[in-house]
Amino acid sequence: MTDTLKLSIQFGGGAELLFDKIKKREVELPALKKYFPESLKEKWAIRELLVWIKDNLLKERPELFLQGDSVRPGILVLINDADWELFGELDYELQANDTIMFISTLHGG
C-alpha cells in the first residue's frame, strides 16, 4: 500500500509558537479512508489536513489556530509558496511532496 502522503508543513510569523516553536515538519499522512473511515472522498484536501494537524500537531490553544472548519482569519496559508486563495483554499487537493505553510499575521508589529 502506498496510500500515504508525504508533506512538508511549515509555520511562521508566530504561528510556530503554537507548535512547540518548530517551524518545519516533514509529515506522512495515512490514507484518507484510514484516518476518516466515514469520508466519501479519496484524497486529502486542506480541510482534512487541518483536522489532522489539530489532532496530531496542535497541542495548545487550538482556537488561536482554527476557527470553524478553517484557519483563524489572519493566518495566511501558502501552498507551495503561493496564496491558497488562488487554489480553492479548503478544497485544494493535496499532492505528494506539497509544502503547506501557515503564517500568522496577528503577531507583533
Binding site: G12, G13, G14, G74, L76, L78, I103, T105, H107, G108
Partner: peptide, 20 residues
C-alpha cells in the same frame, strides 16, 4: 494591508520578530 506586508516580508525573506 497586513496580509501584503506579511507576504512581502515572506517573499523578500525579511527577518522579523513575532513573539507575543
Amino acid at each position: 494591508y497586513e496580509k501584503e506586508i506579511v507576504m512581502y516580508a515572506h517573499y523578500k525573506k525579511l527577518v522579523y520578530f513575532s513573539t507575543e
